[in-house]
Design a protein around this nucleic acid. Structure first.
Lengths: 189, 189
DNA sequence: TGCACTTTTTGATTTATATCAAAAAATGAG
DNA sequence: CTCATTTTTTGATATAAATCAAAAAGTGCA
């Protein structure tokens, strides 16, 4: 039963009471989506948090009519239009599956309602956003101080399969470089 | 009584019970520091959160032996070695006053202890780190998509006084450019 | 008040990566 | 399977900003 695995995972972030776990479980759904399904549309209110169970998704936004990949989601990853959920404004991010995927989802509003009733879930929320902050800080420093080549190599070390499974253009914008530059980097390993 | 103003400010972020306010008040201290005082040293454990009451401070880290200004703190700003507080690792950030300043400070450990006792303070913590996340996201996009000149002009619009009060080199690294480039930008307004 | 030291300015050169352009390869619908 | 469309590769050129270098201006201490 996969929901149980997910709760287990949350429990390692911060211990959750049985009541909190039960309440959370009530709000979590698992669904299968075909390849190339848009599960969150730009300009519509962001409502859901997704957690990848199987498959591959990406979140992206547009800048000067170009799609910029913000993140890839592999099993275990939480993917959502974070800034829109947090600010309650229409989403600037879209999310789509790149492969057939099974995703947990829950209403963000439901999560917020649970915060009121369960102090430990509020703590979970705090710790998760904290982790997002720390990861983003790393990303900021990578963009500022590392060359295209260094960022490419980091990805190659940490998630080599992404370069096979995701189109080059998506990976390029994720790394903050043009497809041409990534193609050339790849040519000389 | 300035602590009262600060509590008021927190109250606008999320409503705090009187008990929570009283507990928080117990942990808050106000102190005056002369210009150029290091209030947080790199490599030492980060222990405090500072909130600027008067004056000007900056937080910075070193990269390739160069100091990089991470943020400036003006009255109302919270300044801390955030990532070290959150990760419990020795600070990679230093913090110093650029002018004589009055700062509120509190032990981060005390804040964490208060989280256990006061759900509403945990919420305050969650909402504050959330705001940090959203601000950092803006910064990341500015670095990725805006030119030096655009970032300079944004600063000029939002905090023109910083260019008078902080040394050019500090502002340059804050903007992610070299002092030479900033000097040239400034020359042609 | 003068002198060492630091910061800022100005100029010349280099460089990484974007942009523009077009060919080659891959993909997918009918 | 075939053709249209999209993606990737390859090449030539442009450019913003870094780097290197040195002069000028500013700062503070003795």
């Amino acid at each position: 039963m996969p929901v149980q695995t997910l709760l287990q995972h949350f429990n390692t972030i911060t211990p959750l009471s049985l009541a909190a776990q039960a309440a959370l479980k009530q709000c979590l759904y698992l669904e299968r989506y075909p390849k190339k399904t848009m599960i969150q549309q730009q300009h519509r209110p962001a409502q859901h948090i997704f957690i990848v169970h199987t498959g591959l998704v990406r979140s992206f936004y547009t800048h000067n009519d170009k799609e910029i990949t913000a993140s890839f989601g592999t099993p275990g990853c939480m993917v959502c239009a974070m800034s829109s959920l947090l600010s309650y404004e229409p989403a600037t991010y879209s999310i789509e599956t790149l492969e057939e995927s099974e995703l947990f989802y829950m209403e963000f509003a439901a999560m917020e309602a649970l915060y009121d009733a369960h102090h430990d879930l509020e703590r979970l929320g705090r710790m998760m956003i904290t982790q997002y902050y720390l990861d983003q800080e790393k990303e900021l420093k990578a963009i500022r101080f590392q060359s295209s080549e260094q960022r490419y190599q980091t990805l190659l070390n940490l998630q080599p399969e992404l370069l096979q499974r995701a189109p080059l253009g998506h990976v390029a914008s994720y790394l903050g470089i043009t497809p041409e530059t990534l193609s050339r980097l790849r040519a000389r390993y």
